[in-house]
Nucleic acid binder design. Structure first.
Lengths: 240, 240
DNA sequence: CCATAGCAAGAGCACTGCTCTCTTTTTTGT
DNA sequence: ACAAAAAAGAGAGCAGTGCTCTTGCTATGG
């Protein structure tokens, strides 16, 4: 029931949105630490105490922004995936994999502070509410979706060396939870690749590559291509 | 000239150290965002304004803690490296590589807030001063050192597929800057592995693996072993 | 038409980083 | 040894923060 019943509810949702917009503006401009409820209220021309009718605390406002950020980056990943047809060759699957990674990277570089909000240090007191766990999985799901399609098309070369059994157990549980048909070894490795992708992104966004990596685009592209290989998408050579 | 000339300098360095100790205590307890100069001063029984004689701002104190944290994790990595003799077989080289990664992980799990300080979102206004770049490289250098030794012993199988030329150029520059003799392809890939290692660590420390990976130890071990393979340390099988 | 529930505003509390001034202590130069 | 200078501490104060409480106002529903 998201029916807006009266002018009051309409105003409420509009103001809630306006608060988030302004908060996101300050977040993008100055970072999460300098996001101030009072400043948001000031910019919106309302008393700071009035803001507490919409968000019971600063942390709640930040949580709302976190969910939105997860949604935004997840949407970017899914758009990149859906922009290309289901893979018929290994090379197409690798291309799709790289397209998702690149889309996530583009979003991260365009929204560094929002990226830091979700993939940097967690905010002081707070632990992720269940609301955030589902949108947080979207990027990972998009990546796994590529592998699922590739596997369905018989394009996946399952890695030879075995995995510890408890790792396989985790992978089986995850596969069941996500309802995806993939060999547990592939699934386990794809979780690793998922984390490692964000290692590359965090180092670039947070400046750890300064004075180390200059050719960022080709470096990233090469790295995620190798990452694809590590989960079973063994790509043939390409030039450049 | 670090000769302590009088009682004044001695007291100064002692108080400086006491401030850092108390600040680190608060950092470990509550996180960087809740680290307060006034609380530190209060705990030390001095006026908050007196603290500014030792650190001109909160950011400067944080920077000092950052440098210390980089040193601590770098020291952990180097100790793990030096605890094992120079590798004579590929398996030994892989073991050394994994030992370094595990040492870094142990440090990160034991000091999550300090880890977040250096590998999480950078603090609001601040960009890393040159003081931090040198200690920040120590973990990476330890990892590259393993590869250097392995290469010198002829244990390194250089990856076959070529790299984009500007990536190779970056790797050559980096090799010259570090004064290390390694094929640029290995060097470039090791930078990727370095970043990816911290992707694994950040996801574990920051809770992204919650309800996804339960068997953390074997998962990590398997992942860094594969990482070693991706930089040319192709390990023979080992059981569980 | 009126009671009620939702909303806005202001004052206020406890806290923060930081600056300024004033006093005390220690070092240094003659 | 004594005065001048440098360094350090203490306190008040400013501007800002998150958050709460009380006081009015306004739109909604019986």
């Amino acid at each position: 029931m998201t029916v807006i019943r009266g002018a009051r509810e309409r105003a409420r949702s509009e103001i809630t949105e306006a608060i988030k917009v302004e908060a996101r503006r300050q977040l993008a401009a100055e970072g999460a630490a300098k996001l101030s409820l009072r400043a948001v209220a000031r910019e919106l021309g309302m008393a700071s105490s009035a803001l507490y009718r919409y968000f019971p605390s600063r942390d709640e406002l930040l949580t709302a922004l976190i969910v939105d950020a997860y949604d935004a980056v997840g949407r970017a990943a899914e758009r990149a995936r859906d922009a290309r047809p289901a893979p018929a060759t290994v090379e197409q699957a690798v291309t799709r994999w790289c397209a998702i990674c690149t889309a996530v990277r583009d979003w991260a570089l365009a929204h560094p502070h929002e990226y830091a909000l979700i993939y940097g240090s967690p905010v002081p007191g707070y632990q992720a509410p269940r609301t955030t766990t589902e949108p947080a999985a979207r990027v990972g799901l998009a990546l796994i979706g590529v592998l699922r399609d590739a596997h369905a098309a018989g394009l996946l070369t399952e890695p030879a060396d075995p995995l510890p059994e408890d790792v396989v157990a985790d992978a089986l549980a995850l596969g069941a939870q996500l309802g995806v048909e993939l060999p547990p070894t592939v699934l386990a490795r794809s979780v690793g690749a998922w984390a490692q992708l964000f290692g590359l992104l965090s180092f670039e966004v947070f400046g750890q590559f300064n004075r180390v990596v200059e050719a960022r685009d080709p470096f990233f592209h090469q790295a995620v291509r190798q990452l694809a290989g590590s989960v079973g998408l063994d790509a043939p050579q390409e030039e450049g």
